[in-house]
Simulated assay, not measured.
Amino acid sequence: MFIQHGFYSLTRYERVLFLEMKGAWNQETTRAFQQDIYQKSAVLHGQPWTEITEMSDWELFTPECEPIIVETVKQAVANGLTREALINSKGSLKLHLFEKYKEQTLYFDKHIAFTRHVFTDMEAALQWLKSEGVDVPNEFK
């Protein structure tokens, strides 16, 4: 087993999870993130919840991380994740992962209403979430 490479921070504010991703992730960091999001979102299961993902400083990840990330998002959607605002101010190729699985049934159950949008700044992301009826916590206002 290797030590974790890369960094993430995951904080829950009411029914919104805020994820900040940085650096280049290896499998150990990805597994730690997976366990953390399962734990922090468990209290939200059965009700709609939202994720704000700041990924401007996230770099590449090792190949074995991709299926873990896909499974993590799939499980989050099954457990009530309805909206995700991705913030990527640097515009890079790392968004391919999110586009790659966008329409595949492997990724989303057609009966679950899940929407993801990419933004270049937090303000635009928050405006979109508000327009979608998300009660944005005071920490983001």
Rank of each mutant, 00 (worst) to 15 (best):
F108A: 11
E84L: 13
T72I: 01
V73H: 04
V118Y: 09
G46E: 05
G80E: 10
E71A: 15
C65G: 08
I112V: 15
A32Y: 06
S89Q: 08
T105E: 11
W25Q: 00
E66D: 10
P63N: 09
K100C: 01
M1S: 13
K102N: 07
V134K: 00
V70R: 08
L97V: 14
V43T: 13
L60I: 13
E139C: 06
H5A: 10
E20N: 09
Q47L: 13
T120V: 11
V70F: 09
I37E: 11
F108W: 10
F61N: 09
V70N: 06
F7T: 09
I37F: 03
V136P: 06
D109C: 08
A125N: 04
Q34N: 06
E123G: 01
Y13A: 10
G6W: 07
L126R: 02
E66M: 05
E28N: 04
L126A: 07
L60D: 15
E139A: 14
D109S: 10
F114I: 05
K110R: 07
N79W: 08
R31L: 12
W25I: 05
K102Q: 15
M55K: 05
W128P: 02
K90I: 02
K22W: 02
G46W: 07
E103I: 00
T72Q: 13
P137Y: 04
S41D: 04
N88P: 00
G46Q: 06
G91I: 06
D135F: 00
V43F: 02
L93Q: 06
E14Q: 15
A24S: 12
F114H: 14
A125S: 07
S41Q: 13
N26R: 01
